[in-house]
């Protein structure tokens, strides 16, 4: 185990023409650490996630990542082939809208197996065994392996997305509002599942959410964003129980107590 961070962002800035996406974001993320990025809509959370996951090119700043071989690489200098390999082996990305993260016309087993086939698995029996193993771990019945996600409920689709991402044993998973749009009981089950898998597999996670309850339940650390800047950062409990910034206080106080 090394003390070097898994991922480090320095001065990340993104402008969309005149408009600001996010500005001067700097942080480190260590292996096994869960970081929540919270803030209201338009605060730059998703832009930040896009920059970290190399889906957007930063206007300034850089992201460094420690690869599986231990080499620390500047993500903007990866070749397209390296970037894609990273995305489908060492990283995962759970989308808010499962339709973006899944192949809706392909069976659940095919969805989970896709990453394996992309990295060269060519044995049908093994691919299928891995797929059914992962479906079981995300609590999808074995009998649904040949059904397409079109016939799945919202909660099942999210769980399928998680299985599809974790099948290659990534070290870092990005999650963009994974629980929004699900009803409360389904949310609770999904969060429970994610928390279990994160602990079991020692995943590092960067989760973007506007739901402070999700942040409290899953994350170790929290970053509060407003108008493209990080205004407060710290341990989750600390920030949520004793917010310093006026805006964070507002956010925390706007949560309805059940």
């Amino acid at each position: 185990m090394t003390d070097l961070p898994l991922l480090s962002a320095r001065g990340l800035t993104k402008f969309y023409g005149e408009r600001l996406g996010c500005r001067d974001v700097t942080f480190d993320l260590h292996e096994g650490e869960v970081l929540a990025v919270v803030g209201e809509s338009g605060s730059g959370k998703s832009t930040l996630l896009g920059l970290l996951a190399t889906e957007l090119a930063p206007s300034a700043g850089a992201v460094h990542y420690r690869m599986r071989d231990g080499a620390v690489r500047d993500l903007s200098e990866l070749t397209e082939a390296e970037r894609r390999l990273l995305l489908r082996t060492d990283w995962g990305f759970v989308r808010q809208d499962a339709r973006e993260g899944l192949r809706m016309g392909v069976s659940a087993g095919g969805n989970v197996g896709e990453r394996l086939m992309a990295v060269g698995a060519r044995h049908y029996g093994n691919i299928r065994a891995a797929a059914s193993d992962w479906l079981a771990r995300v609590e999808i019945e074995a009998g649904r392996i040949d059904d397409t996600p079109k016939s799945f409920s919202g909660g099942m689709r999210q769980r399928l997305q998680i299985a599809r991402n974790l099948v290659t044993h990534p070290r870092l998973v990005f999650m963009d509002e994974p629980t929004s749009g699900l009803d409360v009981s389904v949310q609770a089950r999904l969060l429970d599942l994610i928390r279990g898998l994160v602990a079991e597999l020692g995943l590092a996670v960067i989760i973007v959410t506007h739901d402070l309850a999700v942040a409290r339940l899953l994350s170790h650390r929290i970053m509060v964003m407003r108008r493209g800047r990080v205004i407060e950062t710290g341990l989750t409990d600390q920030v949520l129980d004793d917010p310093r910034e006026a805006y964070t206080q507002l956010l925390v106080s706007s949560v309805l107590a059940a």
Binding site: E114, M117, Y124
Partner: peptide, 29 residues
Amino acid sequence: LEPRETETRKLHALADYGLMHVKLYEDIA
């Protein structure tokens, strides 16, 4: 499997043909 021409060209350029096997997988399944 991939309707975007920009994307399929990239897949060819990178010899990224996992998708083709997804199709065959679906057949067997």
